[in-house]
Design a protein around this nucleic acid. Structure first.
Ligand code: MN
Ligand code: MN
Ligand code: ZN
Ligand code: ZN
Lengths: 146, 146
DNA sequence: TTGAGATTTTGAATCATTCTAAACGAGTAA
DNA sequence: TTACTCGTTTAGAATGATTCAAAATCTCAA
């Protein structure tokens, strides 16, 4: 089963929501809990099915709503690969994503600040960046499968 | 109107198709011509509408087919941003994309080889990359609008 | 306790993309 | 010429993730 949010986690949820004038609700709390519990970049349906175990009446639309809210207040990032279902990531550190094409799994890749800096430097002077997304596609060699 | 392919362009089209055992057809030639004529990363619908001016009977399904064929033989790249329609890019040089959020336009950003090299170095040893995608979102300041 | 405003819920609508099956066309063998 | 093969194109239906609309619930300040 899924642990509750600890004090610090509930704090950042509350703070992020409050900052954009929104409330903590049981549904939002559970959806956020699901995201933190297993950091495998779940799709909406995966979040929905995991959350159902804790709150059987929850609706899919609400999961869409909650996730959209979280993205809107900067608590969570969307991760898109090709045309697949959007995935969600609560890791707020700057990082890239690696999608293993044989398993479909998405891994976080830590992103050195210096690379981000270099990247913004390749832009023409009048281009102002708000976000940068970096995604790798490939395979992970066996051995100790990550 | 749209120029025909020049000798070199028709050559790379023929070669790329032949390499994967496929033929040049009038439809493929026109779709490829449309892509080269205006390098603004058109969507399928945009390609379709531009191609219709030259070949009125062309079907949308065929445009999907042709573009998929081109992607499959490495002639063209798909460009995805968020959940929007897929766009297509015939620029084979390594490059990133910048999406201007106020206009929706997508610009090519030249990508120094050294940055690509550095990027592959941040991966764990057992991660084998096949593709890297880098995309910026932001705005272009006015003045001489690019 | 009440009313306003936010949130959730259900089910329908959207729409880019994919699928299906029939028509077509170029090339080849008979 | 004719018939056959196989890849391609076409029209239209199906799919499926996401969004929308409207009614039901909830929250919370007054
Ligand atoms: Mn692909
Ligand atoms: Mn967005
Ligand atoms: Zn992530
Ligand atoms: Zn491009």
């Amino acid at each position: 089963m899924i642990q509750n949010l600890n004090k610090h986690e509930r704090e950042s949820l509350h703070e992020a929501l409050a900052k954009s004038g929104q409330k903590i609700t049981p549904q939002r709390e559970i959806v956020y809990t699901v995201l933190l519990a297993q950091r495998d970049h779940p799709t909406v349906d995966e979040v929905y099915n995991r959350a159902l175990e804790t709150m059987p009446g929850l609706s899919l639309a609400t999961v869409y709503n909650c996730l959209e809210t979280f993205v809107g207040c900067g608590l969570v990032r969307q991760v898109n690969h090709e045309r697949e279902s959007t995935r969600y990531c609560p890791n707020l550190a700057p990082h890239a994503h690696f999608r293993d094409e044989s398993t479909g799994r998405v891994h976080d890749i830590e992103l050195p600040k210096e690379i981000l800096d270099q990247l913004t430097k390749i832009l023409p002077a009048n281009f102002e960046t708000e976000t940068i997304e970096i995604s790798f596609q490939g395979r992970t060699k066996s051995s100790t499968q990550n």
